[in-house]
Each structure stands twice: as C-alpha cells, then as structure tokens.
Simulated scan of single mutants.
Amino acid sequence: MREFTEQLRRLVERSGLSVGAVADRTGYSKTSWERYLGGRLLPPLGAAEALAEATGTDVVHLSTMWELAERAWSRSELRHDSTVESARIARARAALGEFGPPQGAPQAASQAARAGGQPGAVISEPLCHEAARRAAAAEESPAAGPAGTAGPVGPAVAPEPSGQAPRPPVPGSPQPPDYRANAIPADGPAPRRRAALFVTGVVGALLVVAAAVLLLGVGDGTGGDSGSVQPLASPSAVLPAGVKCTGAECSGKDPEAMGCGGGRATTAGSATVGTSYVEVRYSQVCGAAWARITQAAPGDAVRIDAAADGAAPARTESGRVVRDADGYTPMVAVSGPGKAKACATLTSGSKGCTVARAPSAPAG
C-alpha cells in the first residue's frame, strides 16, 4: 500500500498538476484525491486508471500495482477481523471463568488422578451404564405399549430386585423430566388442532400456486403461447460492479458513493461562470445526472434542473462549495443527457447556466 501510494504521489508531482486539477481531469473530487494520496483510503481501480491517462502513464502497469495494493489491503482487513475475534473470545472466556469450575469437578479430578490420568474412562463409564440401565427399563416398562403405538411416555425407572424397597433419589442429582403432561393422546390431536393444520395446508398450497403463476406468467391474451417462460429482470445482474443504483433509485444520492462518477460519467453540458467552470455530468449506466463546479470559492452554489419527462415531474437538486474549490450536487434521474442543465450562483454575484452539447468520452 505504501509503495502504491508513493507511486501515485510521484505521478502527480511529475505531471505538475495540483490536486484540484487532478480531480477536474479524473472526475473524482479533490477530497477523495487527498485521501488517496495520503494513504488513508485505497482508490478504486477507475480512479487509478483515470490518473494514468491524465498523466500519460502506462495504464497496465498502474493497474497491476493497484491489484497488489488491493490484495494487501484485503489481507490487512482480514488480520484486523481476526484480532477483533480473538479479543472477543478472550473476553467471553474471562467472563465464563468468573462462575468458577462446574459442580463436582474436584471429585472428577480426584477420580481421574486415581485412574492413572485417564479421566475419560472414569467419567464416561458410569454414564454409559446409566444409559444402558434406562434403555432396558424403558423396554421392559408396560407403559411403553406395543411396538408402533404412541402411548404416554414416562420417566424410565430401573426395576429394583424383589423384596427391596426403591432407592430414594440422591439429593442434588438431576431427575428425568416428566413428559406425560405434553404427551399426545392415543386418539390423535384434538379436532381444533386438526382444523388448524388443514387450514395451514390449504394456505400453503395457494401460496405455491400463486408463486408458480407469477414466475411462469399467464400469457398476453393475443393467441401466443401462454406457457412460455419470461425471464425476470434483476437489476443487480445488469449493473456493473460497484454501481449501486439506476434510474429513480439514484435521485437524491451521492454520485461517487453510488459508483456513477469517474469513468462512468460524461460531460453533457458546460459553461464558464466568472472564473468557475460548471458542468452537467451524466451517467448512462445509472440513468442520472448531476451538476459539478470547479475552480470555485467557498459559498458558491450550484444547482441541477431536470426537465419534466413523460409522467415524471421536473426535479431539482442543489449543492454548495464548503471548503474545497469544487463541489457537486446529488443526482436526479433523467432519460438522456439533454434532459438536465446546471446553473451556478457565485458569491461574487455572477450567475450562469450550462449549454447542452454532445456527450463527451468518459472522463479519464
């Protein structure tokens, strides 16, 4: 990561461009480039390729270095996640240790010591005998009923030798639960429960039929094949990697955060207002446009106006330059690059709007 960041700095220094000029030529904001060049954030591949084209550098070489830096960044994140997970496990173990050792642990430890260091043989043997005794008692118990009959289930009690009284339970020992309270009657579930099960089955069948009709379609009524399957469009399947919205979904959202800027945008209109440069940035893949102003001063305002398009009403989004010399507005959904214009109002009093032009090549 350090080597890749230093390479980016050298490219900018050799080109003689300022950070604002680099932002203007690549389509990424000045704030983003300050983070990229400072090593605080890994730039996207589109930003690295745009910088290579703006400075006349071999794009393939810089893309290779970006891939190596991206792998290093991913490994660093994995190590950080592993460290956090280890700390959580350590805290959980420390919290569990406050409850002390389980009851009966000293006796088990002493038995294990007498058994020659094999605690498994001492502890598991009584448990196996107890399980075998309970299984034998369950088979001999008349409450189990004939094979295949769902009779009441009770606790398994081992028979005592004849002539001896039943052994009292050992205090503190776990007692088998009594399942007879929850046992199903021999004649099956109650009528109300049967009715509920029937209604549930009918509703489930109707849901399955409705889903099949929606997936397969019911035909268009024009005599065509009503059984033909129409594929369902999936927005995530047609959008490129990194693009997070399209059309109306992009309205009011940040173009850089949604992956619509950089190399995926073109300049659909521009104008010079005072000493500032105003543009209409249009992204075909996102179906949206936004206004961008560069070489501006803090307090300068910029606005994007989208004309009414069919049933869609006119829309407007505004932005203002806060600290840097550039700024941009949120996006508005448009059907084409000529459907929007950008206007700027400078603190010096100058005003102006863009003039539509043919879309330029993607920003590099």
Rank of each mutant, 00 (worst) to 15 (best):
E13I: 14
G20T: 04
G27T: 03
G27Y: 00
T31E: 13
S32C: 06
G39I: 10
L42V: 15
G46S: 11
A52H: 01
A54R: 01
A69Q: 07
V84S: 02
A95R: 14
L96R: 14
E98Y: 08
F99E: 10
G100S: 14
P101N: 07
G104Y: 03
G104D: 09
A105N: 06
P106V: 09
P126H: 04
L127P: 01
L127F: 06
L127Y: 05
E130G: 04
A136S: 12
A137R: 00
S141D: 15
A144L: 12
A144G: 09
A147H: 13
T149N: 05
G151R: 11
P152G: 06
P152F: 04
A158M: 04
R167A: 11
P171N: 08
G172I: 06
P185I: 03
A186I: 13
P191V: 07
R193I: 12
A195S: 10
V199H: 04
G219E: 14
G219W: 12
D220R: 12
G221S: 12
G224Y: 05
V229K: 12
S234H: 07
V238L: 05
K244D: 14
T246A: 07
E249P: 06
K253S: 13
G262H: 02
G263N: 11
R264I: 07
A265H: 00
S270G: 09
R281M: 09
R281P: 01
A289R: 00
D300K: 11
R303I: 01
A306L: 04
A311S: 13
A314G: 11
V332K: 01
P337L: 02
K339V: 04
K341E: 07
A342V: 01
G364V: 11
